[in-house]
Structures are given as C-alpha cells and as structure tokens.
C-alpha cells in the first residue's frame, strides 16, 4: 500500500504520490479537449513526477490517447479540435502563444502505436532525422550511436546502419522509432500503445527499455494492456468516458482501487 496515494483527499484523486512534496515534471491543470461537440477529455488535472512512468489506461474511446496527444499539442493540427486548460512542463505552460510547437516537441517526444520509420531512409538516417529537421548540427554519428544504445538496438544494427529501416523486424522498428525520439534529447517521452503491434518478446524488450529510460526521462504511456501498465509504470491513471476517474500508485490501482469504476475495469467487469 502506498500511504501517500491512499491519503490523498477524494476531491483530488489525480495527484499522485509525492506530488505535494516535489515539483512535478509534467502538470496538467483542468485540461479539456473537444472535437467539434464531442467533449473527449473532461476537466482533467494530474501531475507526473520527474523520472517516473505514468500509465494511462481505460476502455477504447475513454480519451486516453486524446489526453496523451494534448501533452505535445498534437491537436493543434486538427481544425475541429479545441483545447482548454494548462499543460505545464517544468512549470511552463505549453499552450501559451510564445511556445513554438516544434521546439516543444523536442522537449516532449512521442512514440506511436505502429512503428513508423521513414521508409525511404536508412537506419542511421532515421535516427538522425529529427536532428536534420530541427537544424541541429554537430556529430550526428555520435548521437545516432548514443540514441541506438539507449533504445537497446545498437548491438543489433551497428553493422548495417546504412540498411533500409524497413529491413528491421517490427520490434526493432519500434525501438528505432524510440531511438529517433531520443536523438533530439527530449525530457518527456509520450508513448501511445508502443507495444500493441509487437509479439511478446519484442514487447518485453520495449518494457525493459522503459525501465531503463525512466532513469533519464519522464514517461507517459497509454496502453490497452493492463498487465503492461502494471509491469512498467509507477503510477496509473484510469480514464473513463473522457474523465480521469482515479490515479494512484500502480500497485494500489491493481490491488485496491478506491473507485468502483476502476475496480470494475481492472477486474474485467465492463462490457
């Protein structure tokens, strides 16, 4: 039992353990997202501590991916999308005019559900792509090696960096995408179902990687797999119908959730 999580007042279930004593890396305040008239994320507030992993779970359509995408302003490009509230990274609101979304995405990287390497580029070029696009000069080869090492892919690809990225297996491609995200040295890594298209071994590698990456990054992962959430995260947030129902230490959410809807979801009683 996590004493801090369990003692959080009912009115503020979204504040994870330790939030009161440390400045969070990411703090979401009263976030709302609409797609035209569809209120996809409702008045959500939560905080994520530095170097921790937050898993976001919930049934399809609960708003978890929408929530994640709001964290690096991916809805900016959707004409019917409207976002209100604040997303603070190190206390700075990402939704103010002064923040350049491109620079923001260097700080808040993203890995998607299906591995999406640039198909015409080599392994090496894929990793360096963010650097090139952002006009970052310097020793790209060094960055490529460092990023591939961090993504636990270096040993598998070091002898064929010039090969097409598409020659890699699905699991390797996903780690390549993680390496690409890491190359521009983000502080926060968003992952949207990063292992849902992968087999169990490739999934285990991604999960192991998440454990290693949290030493240096703050990670927010959306997952359909409750076992995955249980395995990789420090805290878990449960969304239902656009609402953050409960957030707490992962162990607490999976052994003793406070909210009935969380209980029903983690025990498989929705349907």
């Amino acid at each position: 039992m996590n004493a801090l999580a369990s003692s959080a007042p009912d009115s503020a279930p979204a504040v994870a353990a330790g939030a009161a004593i440390a400045t969070p890396k990411v703090e979401v305040q009263k976030l709302n997202v609409w797609f035209a008239k569809n209120h996809a994320v409702k008045d959500t507030s939560l905080a994520v501590q530095v170097h921790t992993v937050l898993a976001v779970i919930g049934p399809s359509g609960c708003g978890k991916s929408t929530f994640l995408r709001a964290l690096n302003r991916m809805h900016d490009l959707v004409p019917v999308a409207r976002v209100t509230g604040k997303v603070l990274v190190d206390g700075q609101d990402l939704y103010t005019r002064e923040v350049d979304p491109v620079l923001l995405r260097r700080r808040v990287g993203m890995v998607f559900q299906r591995p999406n390497p640039f198909p015409t580029m080599s392994i090496e070029e894929n990793v360096a792509a963010g650097l090139v696009l952002n006009g970052i000069s310097g020793n790209h080869a060094e960055v490529v090696e460092r990023s591939l090492r961090k993504a636990a892919l270096w040993d598998e690809v070091k002898d064929r960096l010039g090969h097409a990225a598409t020659s890699l297996s699905g699991g390797q491609q996903q780690r390549l995408c993680i390496a690409r995200a890491l190359a521009i040295e983000p502080e926060v890594l968003l992952m949207d179902e990063p292992a849902s298209a992968l087999d169990p071994i490739a999934t285990a590698k991604i999960e192991e990687l998440i454990h290693e990456l949290k030493e240096h990054y703050t990670i927010i992962i959306v997952t359909h797999s409750m076992q995955q959430a249980a395995r990789v995260s420090d805290h878990t947030a449960f969304f239902y119908m656009g609402e953050l129902v409960e957030m707490g230490a992962t162990e607490q959410i999976f052994t003793n959730p406070k909210e009935r809807r969380t209980e029903d979801y983690v025990t498989g009683k929705f349907g």
């Binding site: 076992q227 052994t255 959730p257 209980e263 983690v266 025990t267």
Partner: peptide, 9 residues
C-alpha cells in the same frame, strides 16, 4: 486470468 483488485485479493 491475471486477476486484479478484489479478484486478486
């Protein structure tokens, strides 16, 4: 089944 919450308990 990997039971959770009240089922696990």
């Amino acid at each position: 089944r990997q039971p959770a919450a009240s089922d696990l308990r």
